[in-house]
Design a protein around this nucleic acid. Structure first.
Lengths: 211, 211
DNA sequence: TTTTTTATGTGATTTAATTCACTTTAATAA
DNA sequence: TTATTAAAGTGAATTAAATCACATAAAAAA
């Protein structure tokens, strides 16, 4: 099948499917139907089949999906059949917690550089061995370390400037934890993680469905 | 106007609008048109007007929106015209970083309790003065502290069990940082924050738009 | 073999969300 | 006072996403 326009939501669901599939694989399950996987992921079975159909045929009719194969296929679709080098910009509370957080490594993301602007931090080593560089050296270090993705964990006020520097350095993927809407050119893809927005959504629901 | 079914996406955009409006207010702007606000938020102007129209009429035709008023109105819509007490469950790297993170307070969310399961941590005080309680005391402490929202920052394996305890304790809003799909009854609203999913999405984009 | 069962893959349908394009209203200028 | 301009509000149209429902294919049973 060709590539029509694929809903962004479908891409995100593929990640959800992988997580469920990996859990099933650990439990020793070999094959699963769209129906059972759907239940586990909290979605409609047809949704799963359609999401996968954007990229090809991965199941066996009358049987289901071979879990091992499907994991491999989805990883290939998402570009997870390799490692990605990440730079952390902003080594404060959040930045350093994220670096120590095991979940990135587990999925093939490697913190390969860290930056800050605080003179007291520059040159120090993080628990994982990374040296903290000054943001002014971003372009140089990004190239040396072959960084693919930048994670912004600075205050909101610095976010746009950091994003600009990342783009100049040739980084086209940005994960932004700063509560700021950053502007980037077409070539660059930004994902925002703003937990206060999520909290607002919870507050709304609690307020409306009589707390 | 009545309350038809309101797209979840619209609610999330209201948070975005607030952030932009607060920035504008700081800069001394008094009034803004949907067109200019839209540009700043990266959305369509009609979208903003429709999102607001779900809840009433807040602008002045021919003029625009009075920023101060609109902020107040949106906060009221979202239930942000009050404070919300939050409990952190799991005081590891991420949990403690989030507690120290200033963004929650800024938006009216107050960490009012913290829990962990590690005996070495129980009874210790966090920098903000909170004592770490054992998870077994969750129900009791949640009620004492009038907790409205639980933030799960435990390993994935513990997430469902913690969610169950929160619900038993009467907490109907959960912000889940654990990479696990948690099941809850109708009455409870869960928002997931999974940055590896966001990274996967970035990886997909970098892979497809020839990096 | 042939029939039955099971579950994928997919065109058609439905539902939801977004955007358009026009109407209404307020303010300003003539 | 009247015409003009600007921008909100909104029904209609469009676009996008999700779901249904059935045709298809593989495996198992008869």
């Amino acid at each position: 099948m060709k590539f029509p326009k694929i809903p962004m939501a479908a891409i995100n669901r593929l990640s959800i499917y992988i997580r469920a599939l990996e859990e099933l694989e650990e439990q020793g399950t070999k094959v699963i139907s769209s129906e059972r996987l759907a239940k586990q992921c909290g979605v409609n079975p047809a949704q799963i089949r359609k999401d996968l159909a954007y990229f090809g045929e991965f199941g066996v009719r009358g049987v289901g999906y071979r879990i091992e194969d499907l994991i491999r296929e989805i990883k290939e679709i998402l570009g997870l059949d390799r490692t990605w080098n990440i730079a952390m910009i902003g080594v404060g509370n959040l930045g350093s917690a994220l670096i120590r957080h095991g979940n990135f490594i587990k999925h093939g993301y490697v913190f390969a550089a860290a930056f800050d602007i605080d003179p007291h931090k520059i040159g120090k080593r993080l628990p994982n061995g990374l040296v903290i560089h000054h943001i002014d050296d971003l372009e140089k270090v990004v190239k040396e370390c072959d960084i693919h993705i930048g994670v912004i964990a600075t205050p909101a006020s610095a976010a746009q400037s950091v994003a600009n520097q990342l783009i100049i350095a040739g980084v086209n993927g940005i994960l932004n934890f700063a509560p700021a809407q950053i502007q980037v050119p077409e070539c660059c893809h930004v994902e925002n993680v703003d937990f206060t927005i999520k909290l607002d959504s919870i507050a709304y629901h609690l307020s409306t469905t009589g707390t």
